[in-house]
Design a protein around this nucleic acid. Structure first.
Length: 160
DNA sequence: GCCAACGTTGGC
DNA sequence: GCCAACGTTGGC
């Protein structure tokens, strides 16, 4: 029997890659690349599985918050940008036979009708304690609980 | 644009 | 293996 679905939150600065960029991608599917933090990498390598569900979070630019959902359609594999000298994610020290950085393929599931903002998240008990709300939390790949998953959909006013 | 918080690097 | 210096993240 397959493992139960897991829930995640992936962060991106919309100027680098936004939910509209994902929506405009072929098959509304794209490689989530450029993760260059070991803790986040370990999640992508060890825990994120095909079928897992993911919040898309816009950081750095207003309005900050959760803008929609995605589904993992291909589990972790070597992020090709680490071997591309022209990429800003190039890593000369990553051994080709033992790639250091991992990406996953994600497909757009749902763009929320409006951003679920940090203010909204902060004003509800279940979501106020989400990892993304913690001060100084920089992790770009974060686990989310089922109850957080459901509550955010409620705040967005949509079915999951 | 500021700057606190954080992760990584590298000299020792 | 410590830790100061540095670069980056990301809310505000």
């Amino acid at each position: 029997m397959a493992d139960p679905v897991r829930y995640w939150l992936f962060k991106s600065e919309p100027s680098a890659f936004s939910i509209d960029d994902l929506a405009a991608s072929p098959g509304q599917t794209a490689l989530w690349d450029g993760v260059r933090n070991y803790q986040a990498r370990n999640f992508l390598r060890d825990d994120v599985q095909t079928g897992d569900l993911v919040f898309f979070y816009h950081s750095r630019e207003e309005p900050l918050g959760i803008v929609g959902t995605m589904q993992v359609v291909r589990a972790g594999y070597a992020d090709p940008t680490q071997f591309n000298p022209d990429s800003k994610y190039y890593d000369a020290k990553s051994p080709p036979d033992a790639p250091r950085w991992i990406g996953v393929d994600v497909q757009l599931k749902q763009k929320f009708p409006a951003v679920v903002t940090r203010d909204q998240l902060a004003s509800h008990t279940k979501t106020a304690s989400m990892l993304v709300m913690k001060r100084g939390m920089r992790l770009s790949i974060q686990p989310v609980t089922r109850s957080e998953w459901l509550q955010v959909h409620q705040l967005a006013g949509v079915r999951q």
